[in-house]
Design a protein around this nucleic acid. Structure first.
Lengths: 231, 231
DNA sequence: AACGCTGCTGCCATAAACTGTCAGCAGGGA
DNA sequence: TCCCTGCTGACAGTTTATGGCAGCAGCGTT
């Protein structure tokens, strides 16, 4: 079985990602149970495969956030689903995530054999409409705030045109037909509130982390809903 | 470089997929430039990696339709896009494709390390609404008819409630908010027509292939549109 | 400037793996 | 029954990966 090497490379990637700060090659070599010389070769292999590993002399190695998918088998329909989904994201999401969707799609299509590319590519499957609303807010910053559980300060105009300023704890982001909605705990109201991203006049992500876990807020919020949204 | 072997395995997969009918190991061995014994070992390797290859004594090998993605690097945002896209497909598409989307999503999430799973999983990103309309028609059969360029016979009721029966050449399927729409050349009208899948009363996929290329129809249809739909 | 730490590359002998040949067994189809 | 084919084991030859050594270059600290 030729799994030994590729498996070790995946282990190396995971090890590398566990550390936030730069790791020296010596440490990585020990953790993967391999000599330093081999480790350098492994790093080179991973870089050749597209892993974004940066090595700097005197510092160590850093892996840019991301993930390497091991080889996987997809059925024809699963492939269609991935392609259609990416295409939807490329259309419906905010520019940055949309771009990421287009990139992911391009990566997948690039490795598809020609005949299968014809099957899923072109516009045999397409999604209907492009979103027309514009966000003043930086939605990717909101996603990041959710990931990092940061307090968000919103300058927000509601449906009646009333403008308010409040601090919220965002824990989820919903993609609806034409709008995106932040689910958050509102410090002002001491309750769950949702905010349309296109009604955000201005916002700021605080350095401070809010005092609860995002998943806990999500769970609690779900319990308050009459019709629970499935994941 | 350890690319020799894995590259050969991918070549083997592609070779295997080119044939529709069973291929003998001897042929595969010749095409990949390797001994028969090694070919058996390669097949075993691929099967161990999840490739759905079936070998039967006296017959040969058959690869179930699908594709193996080689190891690929995705950025965090690309991963989010894939996950969100799959989630949308799982909700918005017809049951069968939706299931494929869920499966693809599960496969990806399964290989994600725990911390990254938490980032994209749960319902941090979710899509808004579930489609409520029901198709009487088998949409996956429609997709297949498009792929194979088959004539489709429709029993169709239009918006005025008029019922018609016609033969069409389907070449694309559009996913809109609540409905799916077949783009096709209509033999009755000798022109392009579109059909909502939920208005299909009954349908039959003919064995006969329609006399034009799907991509050519698509291109021609695009030129007739005032506002060209991007791919 | 000097030193230590670290990434990185070349060389080479050793260890591990992959490969091909040969043999044999089992299942499918005529 | 016979042939074709998938499948497995054993073994030797070949290829590849590995580890140790040496040396060079970049970064940070003293």
């Amino acid at each position: 079985m030729p799994v030994a090497r590729s498996e070790r490379l995946l282990t190396l990637l995971q090890t590398l990602r566990r550390y936030r700060r730069p790791v020296t090659g010596t440490v990585l070599a020990q953790e993967t149970g391999v000599s330093l010389r081999t480790l350098y070769r492994d790093i080179a292999s991973l870089q050749a495969q597209g892993a974004m590993i940066e090595g700097e002399a005197g510092i160590g190695y850093v892996l840019k956030p991301g993930f390497m998918l091991p080889p996987m088998m997809f059925s024809e329909e699963e492939l269609e689903a991935l392609v259609l989904g990416s295409r939807w994201v490329a259309r419906a999401a905010e520019p940055r995530l949309a771009g990421a969707g287009a990139d992911a799609l391009a990566k997948i299509v690039a490795v598809l054999p020609a005949d299968m590319r014809e099957t899923v590519d072109s516009a045999t499957l397409f999604v209907g409409r492009k979103r027309q609303d514009e966000d003043r807010a930086d939605v990717s910053a909101i996603r990041k705030a959710i990931r990092l559980e940061r307090v968000l300060e919103l300058h927000y105009g509601d449906e009646q045109g009333r403008i308010s300023r409040r601090r919220v704890w965002p824990f989820a982001l919903g993609y609806f037909e034409h709008v995106r909605i932040i689910m958050a705990w509102c410090e002002l109201r001491q309750d769950f509130r949702h905010f349309r991203t296109d009604r955000i006049i201005d916002m700021a992500v605080h350095e401070m982390r809010y005092p609860r876990r995002r998943t806990a807020l999500l769970k609690e919020w779900r319990e308050t809903q009459d019709v629970p949204l499935e994941t």
